Computed example of a mutant assay.
Amino acid sequence: MSPTDPIDQTFAGKVALITGAGKNIGRTIALDLAARGASVVVNGRSDRSAVDGVVAEVNAAGGQAIGYLADVSDPAATQSMIEAAVAAFGGIDILVSNAGLRRQTPFLEMSFAEWREILSVALDGGFVLARAAVPHMLGRGGGAIVALSGISTHVGTPNRCHVSASKAGLEGLMRALAVELAPHAITCNTVAPGAVDTVRGASAGALPSSLRDSGPPLGRKADVAEISAAVRFLAGPEGRYITGQTLHVNGGAFLT
């Protein structure tokens, strides 16, 4: 069954914004939520054709989607994107903070500029997005924020201290917001994938040996649909009593 096949209408009437949704995990989340009735905003940073492609897939399957290019670390651009979502669909119910940069650079060769660049997207972006989206969730009686972290934050990965720090900070942000926003029926959680069968961008480099050489007990990489399913659960009606958590989806590679 493809993500755009009619399945159910769990998210009918809901509006979801998914960042970094032009490909891989973000794309699958957007298609998955749209297949279940959500109106989706497909965000990308610069790849217009990828974003437009996902929007076209959703609309061709009978769903509703718009695309919006915005750097989530830019408060003005992010605010404009939120306003476009509200204008198109009436509000925001679900925010999936998936955008992030991955790069491999030895610590002693890492410039402060590179450090800040990596943190600006996942961590700063997570704050900027939530700050812009939450007022609209309040007006709709609640909502769900799901951020995407990763296994490298928990196992320690050479040459990626900036990536690990950005995702660790994102998990901390979700825990703090979970407590602060709980009175408003807004849940905040993180999904931390292990190795996933995706097309890695050139800047990400090869899969780190610490994740590649000793595979998980389940003996394979995750499919993107398995990560999307975790996000869908946390964002949906069955996950409304779960907040402040990090859900590990890694085939047993890291055990909490």
Score class of each variant (00 low, 15 high):
residue 139 G to M: 13
residue 120 S to R: 07
residue 49 S to V: 12
residue 78 T to P: 05
residue 153 T to K: 10
residue 133 A to Y: 03
residue 125 G to S: 04
residue 213 D to L: 12
residue 190 T to Y: 07
residue 44 G to R: 01
residue 47 D to H: 09
residue 102 R to C: 11
residue 186 I to C: 06
residue 237 P to K: 08
residue 232 R to W: 05
residue 130 A to P: 08
residue 210 S to P: 05
residue 102 R to K: 11
residue 181 L to Y: 10
residue 29 I to R: 01
residue 8 D to P: 11
residue 199 V to A: 15
residue 91 G to W: 10
residue 67 G to L: 00
residue 145 I to T: 01
residue 234 L to V: 05
residue 71 D to T: 10
residue 97 S to V: 11
residue 219 G to S: 07
residue 72 V to M: 08
residue 86 V to H: 07
residue 108 L to D: 15
residue 5 D to P: 04
residue 37 G to W: 08
residue 254 F to Y: 15
residue 89 F to L: 04
residue 91 G to T: 07
residue 136 H to Y: 14
residue 42 V to T: 11
residue 114 E to G: 04
residue 76 A to V: 15
residue 123 L to N: 00
residue 228 S to P: 05
residue 224 V to L: 09
residue 94 I to S: 03
residue 129 L to H: 01
residue 145 I to V: 14
residue 164 S to Y: 00
residue 94 I to G: 01
residue 185 A to L: 14
residue 228 S to Q: 06
residue 84 A to S: 13
residue 146 V to S: 04
residue 92 I to H: 04
residue 79 Q to N: 15
residue 72 V to W: 00
residue 201 G to R: 14
residue 98 N to F: 06
residue 245 Q to S: 13
residue 51 V to K: 03
residue 28 T to V: 12
residue 55 V to Y: 02
residue 62 G to L: 06
residue 207 L to M: 14
residue 65 A to G: 05
residue 244 G to I: 08
residue 143 G to M: 03
residue 16 A to M: 02
residue 153 T to E: 13
residue 145 I to L: 13
residue 45 R to H: 14
residue 216 P to M: 10
residue 130 A to H: 03
residue 67 G to A: 03
residue 209 S to P: 07
residue 49 S to G: 05
residue 20 G to C: 06
residue 205 G to E: 03
residue 226 E to Q: 05
residue 220 R to Q: 11
residue 177 L to E: 08
residue 17 L to V: 15
residue 57 E to T: 02
residue 239 G to F: 09
residue 170 L to W: 00
residue 218 L to T: 12
residue 82 I to G: 04
residue 128 V to T: 13
residue 77 A to E: 10
residue 203 S to Y: 11
residue 11 F to T: 00
residue 150 G to F: 01
residue 74 D to Y: 03
residue 122 A to V: 04
residue 63 G to I: 09
residue 169 G to W: 10
residue 23 K to T: 13
residue 39 S to D: 08
residue 127 F to A: 09
residue 167 K to P: 10
residue 233 F to P: 02
residue 40 V to T: 01
residue 161 C to I: 13
residue 254 F to D: 10
residue 22 G to Q: 09
residue 146 V to D: 03
residue 37 G to Y: 11
residue 221 K to V: 14
residue 72 V to Y: 00
residue 49 S to C: 06
residue 252 G to V: 02
residue 62 G to S: 12
residue 70 A to C: 12
residue 154 H to M: 12
residue 97 S to W: 04
residue 8 D to I: 09
residue 197 D to E: 12
residue 184 H to P: 04
residue 18 I to T: 09
